[in-house]
């Protein structure tokens, strides 16, 4: 576990707010005061429902959305202070893979054109042979062999899983230090999913990258991640190792999430999470702890006091004012 390795990215009091169309309306606080270190060489999963701010957070890490206040530093340098040329280099070091591989391709481009495009954008490779060898190498590493055959094909000739492999190849062809994958398997069939997940794990090792995985699915996070961060309405509510978080969730929200995941075992049917309602509409953020209106353990103070992330064990943090009193039963036998 690389918690003693240096942070590749450091996020401090990050706030990303979006103005709303109606003037004078309160802005949407998509990310609201997040502190997070991403350590070199780790696989970190950021988990949350839609509206939790997880996608906005990772977009801010790649400098793709304007930061309202707070900071993101990459390799020790604040992104705001990067000069033009440095920003270009930074863009090469951080690459993204998105959910829908169907939409991100130009259907008239061959796989070779798709995967070589980032190289051209960044002026890498002076000869065609050089570009070709980088492209073939990336395709092979992503399991698209023989590479020279796949390079000639077009997106519609590939299966969903193969298309996702192409988008991974076009992300790693630049040899990034940080690969950010946003829901990369949620559109794929179950039988294809775990092959793509293990491809990510293999690539992180062979390419010596840091991997950030954004997902709504805790079981996907469990498969790939060293550490898991859980977000709710713009804030981190719990973070810890995968084992701490799944085996012994401390925050009532995480506990409900882990309890609610249906296990493929009919003898483990039926513990229902005691949580009420839906994710609150982010436009109207509840006072105090944002989860309190749905929380089965909420006390009066929860509607007033904003809980801070506090340590439970080494590396395990939960934002709940009742951390010390609640002793939630582990939801799964592990």
């Amino acid at each position: 576990m690389p918690s003693n390795s240096p942070a590749i990215a450091s996020i401090r009091d990050l706030n990303v707010h979006f103005k709303r169309r109606r003037r004078l309306a309160e802005p949407v606080r998509a990310v609201d005061g997040v502190d997070l270190d991403i350590f070199k060489g780790e696989t970190l999963a950021i988990v949350g429902e839609s509206g939790s701010g997880k996608t906005t957070l990772v977009r801010a890490i790649g400098h793709l959305v304007p930061i309202t206040f707070g900071s993101v530093a990459f390799g020790g340098t604040d992104l705001e202070n990067l000069k033009r040329a440095e920003l270009r280099a930074f863009r090469r070091k951080v690459q993204y893979v998105f959910q829908d591989p169907f939409e991100s391709f130009d259907r008239r481009q061959s796989i070779f054109q798709i995967v070589s495009q980032p190289l051209r954008v960044h002026n890498i490779g002076s000869t065609r042979a050089e570009i070709q060898s980088r492209v073939y190498e990336a395709l092979e590493e992503c399991g698209l062999e023989p590479a020279h055959e796949f390079a000639k094909l077009f997106p519609h000739q590939l299966s969903g899983g193969q298309r996702q492999r192409v988008s991974i190849a076009s992300a790693i062809v630049l040899r990034p230090d940080l690969l950010i994958a946003d829901e990369p398997v949620s559109m794929l069939d179950v039988s294809v999913r775990s092959e793509i997940l293990s491809l990510f794990v293999r690539l992180r090792e062979s390419r010596n990258m840091t991997l950030v995985f954004v997902t709504h699915d805790l079981s996907v996070a469990w498969e790939v991640a060293d550490r898991i961060v859980v977000m709710y309405l713009g804030k981190i509510v719990e973070q810890g190792t995968a084992h701490q978080l799944i085996g012994n969730p401390a925050n009532p929200y995480t506990h409900a999430l882990v309890t609610a995941i249906p296990v493929p075992d009919p003898s483990q049917r039926g513990i229902d999470p005691a949580v009420k309602g839906d994710i609150a509409d982010i436009k109207g953020i509840p006072s105090g702890c944002r989860f309190h209106p749905r929380c089965p353990y909420a006390i009066e103070k929860c509607s007033v006091a904003v809980p801070a992330l506090a340590p439970i064990q080494a590396g395990h943090f939960s934002a709940c004012i009742r951390n010390d009193e609640l002793d939630l039963e582990p939801p799964h036998h592990m």
């Binding site: 179950v190 039988s191 999913r193 775990s194 079981s219 996907v220 469990w222 498969e223 995968a242 799944i246 085996g247 995941i261 296990v263 493929p264 075992d265 483990q268 799964h332 036998h333 592990m334």
Partner: peptide, 9 residues
């Protein structure tokens, strides 16, 4: 192919 907490990572 389904992740199962009980089975391990």
């Amino acid at each position: 192919s389904v992740p199962n907490f009980a089975k391990g990572r």
